[in-house]
Design a protein around this nucleic acid. Structure first.
Lengths: 141, 141
DNA sequence: CTGTATCCCTGAGGATACTG
DNA sequence: CAGTATCCTCAGGGATACAG
């Protein structure tokens, strides 16, 4: 047990214990973050209310929080205009755009394979493969 | 080609309302899923206990659930051997490997930029930019 | 060894009301 | 318009015990 890692069995070539994996997931694993980045990437500078309108279902709380996180990490810029009524515009930085590219790739993968996945899932339903919980459906003796 | 990418105000060019975006996120947004796929991708066929050992911190519940989800979607195969003691091996399918590639790209992005992000975040701490909650730190007025 | 079933707690996030 | 503050729900997921 105390011996180092068992190279022969499990392979530790992957940074499963690396903190930055977690960092990525915290970023792109949040659907609002992805949707926000995608929306900004597609639409150039957008203001708060435009973002809210463009991302169906997002709450003020989540939009604000997401924007702050993204700004904090340097993925977007926040530009307030000292006029009335108040106006604030958000825009992707270069860093943000680079993430956008990676995200787009993921979305591309999803677009390509999601029907296949759906098919597999449907098939699994029939065969009972991969059933997570022991189904409420009693076998009806 | 839809040149209708012109944007005035909110842009709906992004499938922010598409269900399959959500599907992807449900998949790759889960850290255990990513770690599991990564581990399987790096180490060939692995058994249950090897996976558990290779993914620090994962609980039996989560490992089982993750594996079932992945199997159900056709991303991995589950191969039980009728011997004693019981042995079950998990392995990526081609579909799973294709997702692995996309995930690897994301991880690559993270590896490349995470120090930059960390820097931005640290800088933001100093300037107070992007503060999510109104800081406990009273301005010592 | 390979799971399954339960309990339980934390915190993500929606709804709502208020401010500058 | 552009947020902030608060309440409250509910489900993700850890710990644990049990089964084949």
């Amino acid at each position: 047990m105390a011996s180092a890692r068992r190279i022969s069995g499990p392979c530790r070539a992957w940074p499963a214990d690396s903190a930055f994996i977690r960092e990525v997931l915290d970023r792109i694993g949040d659907k609002w973050t992805v949707l926000t980045i995608g929306t900004l990437g597609a639409g150039g500078p957008l203001r708060y209310s435009d973002l809210q309108a463009s991302i169906p279902g997002i709450s003020q709380r989540m939009l604000t929080q997401t924007l702050k996180h993204l700004e904090r990490d340097g993925l977007i810029t926040r530009t307030p205009y000292a006029e009335v009524p108040p106006r604030v515009e958000y825009e992707l930085t270069d860093l943000g755009r680079s993430l956008m590219d990676a995200v787009t790739a993921m979305v591309g993968w999803a677009a390509t394979h999601h029907s296949e996945i759906a098919g597999n899932r449907a098939a699994s339903e029939l065969t009972g493969v991969g059933r997570v919980r022991s189904a409420v459906s009693a076998p009806t003796g």
